[in-house]
C-alpha cells in the first residue's frame, strides 16, 4: 500500500493539523508516513494545501508537493467551487469531503460526512481538522480507531489545546471514524500506485530563453495590479449594506484595510466583492449598523 493524499482547505481551518493527524496515526499504526504543509505567504481564509504520503512497507521515495494524489481530503465543500481541487487526481481517486451526505456528485468516487455540524455540536465551533483526518483514516483503511485517537491527542496537545478540548476533539474524531465506510475497492485497486506517465516524459522539459530588455529583471510596472487576485474567495462572511439605513458617513470607506469600498460622488458606498476578504470591520464600525453580516454560502 502506498497512498498520496492531498488536503484542501483555507488558512486557519487546520489543514496542516489534519494532515499531521493522518500522518501520526499512520506512524502509530506502524506505517511509513510523511506530512508537509504548503509553505507560502497565504493568509487566514486563503486556499491552502497540505500533503500526506503513507506506505505500509517500502520506504517513501518521493518528496515535495503532491501533484498526482490518490485521494483528496476537502475540509470544506466551498473549496470545490473556489479552488478546483481535482487537478492531478487519478481517475479512480477518492474524494473525502466534509459535506452533508447529499453533497454534489463528483466524477470521482467519494465519501462524505458533515463534520462541521458534528463539530458545532461536540466542540461548539466549526473546527474540523480532527474530524476530517478521521474520515481519511477510515475511508482509506489506513489506521485503527485507537491509533487515530492517540494521534489526535498528540497533535492537539502539540498546538497547545486545553486537555478538555483535546478530549472533545477525540470524541469528534471517533464519531467521524464510525460514520463512514472503508472503501475496499479503492484500497485494493491501488497497490502499487501508478505514476502519471506524462510525468516521466522528457518532452515536458524546455530550455528557457535568455530574455532581453527589462524582461530578465524581476520588476513589475503594472503596479497596483493585485486587484486581479480574487481575494473575495477568502470570504467566510459577507458584508451587505442596507442603503435605507446608510447616512453616507464614509466610516466604512475609511476603515476598509483593502480599499474594497468605493464611494460615489454623493458618498454612497459600494463594496467591491471580487476582493473583499470579509473582515467585517465595516460592519463593526458602521455607526448606524447599516451593514449586516451574511454567512458565505458553501457551494
Amino acid at each position: 500500500m502506498k497512498i498520496r493524499i492531498r488536503l484542501h482547505g483555507r488558512g486557519g481551518q487546520g489543514v496542516k493539523t489534519a494532515g499531521r493527524i493522518i500522518s501520526t496515526a499512520c506512524f502509530l499504526e506502524g506505517h511509513c508516513a510523511e506530512d508537509s504543509p504548503m509553505y507560502g505567504p497565504e493568509r487566514r481564509g486563503a486556499p491552502v494545501l497540505s500533503f500526506v504520503r503513507v506506505s505500509d512497507g517500502e520506504p517513501l521515495e518521493e518528496r515535495g508537493y503532491i501533484e498526482h494524489p490518490d485521494a483528496l481530503v476537502l475540509l470544506d465543500s466551498s473549496s470545490v467551487s473556489r479552488s478546483s481541487p481535482f487537478y492531478g487526481l487519478r481517475t479512480d481517486g477518492l474524494v473525502i469531503i466534509n459535506a452533508p451526505l447529499l453533497a454534489p456528485k463528483f466524477a470521482f468516487p467519494s465519501v462524505a460526512f458533515d463534520v462541521s455540524s458534528a463539530a458545532l455540536r461536540v466542540l461548539k465551533k466549526d473546527s474540523v481538522s480532527a474530524g476530517a483526518a478521521a474520515l481519511a483514516c477510515k475511508a482509506l483503511g489506513l489506521t485503527s480507531i485507537e491509533s487515530l485517537s492517540e494521534a489526535v491527542r498528540m497533535e492537539m496537545n502539540e498546538i497547545g489545546l486545553r486537555p478538555e478540548l483535546i478530549e472533545r476533539n477525540v470524541e469528534l474524531a471517533r464519531e467521524c471514524f464510525s460514520s463512514v465506510p472503508t472503501v475496499k475497492s479503492f484500497v485494493h485497486a491501488h497497490d502499487p500506485s501508478p505514476t502519471d506517465s506524462n510525468d516521466e516524459s522528457s518532452e515536458k522539459l524546455v530550455e528557457i530563453p535568455q530574455m532581453v530588455g527589462l524582461q530578465p529583471i524581476a520588476a513589475i510596472i503594472a503596479t497596483g495590479n493585485s486587484r486581479l487576485n480574487e481575494t473575495g474567495l477568502w470570504r467566510l462572511t459577507t458584508p451587505r449594506i442596507d442603503y435605507s439605513k446608510c447616512t453616507k458617513c464614509i466610516v466604512c470607506f475609511v476603515y476598509c484595510p483593502d480599499s474594497c469600498i468605493t464611494l460615489e460622488p454623493d458618498l454612497t458606498p459600494h463594496i467591491q466583492y471580487e476582493n473583499c476578504k470579509g473582515c467585517m470591520i465595516c460592519a463593526t464600525e458602521c455607526p448606524l449598523h447599516a451593514i449586516s453580516e451574511e454567512r458565505a454560502v458553501p457551494a
Binding site: Y39, G40, P41, I217, A218, A219, I220, I221, T223
Partner: peptide
C-alpha cells in the same frame, strides 16, 4: 512610469 523592484515570490 512606476516600477517595483525586488518582488517576493513563492
Amino acid at each position: 512610469a512606476p516600477v517595483t523592484y525586488g518582488p517576493t515570490t513563492s
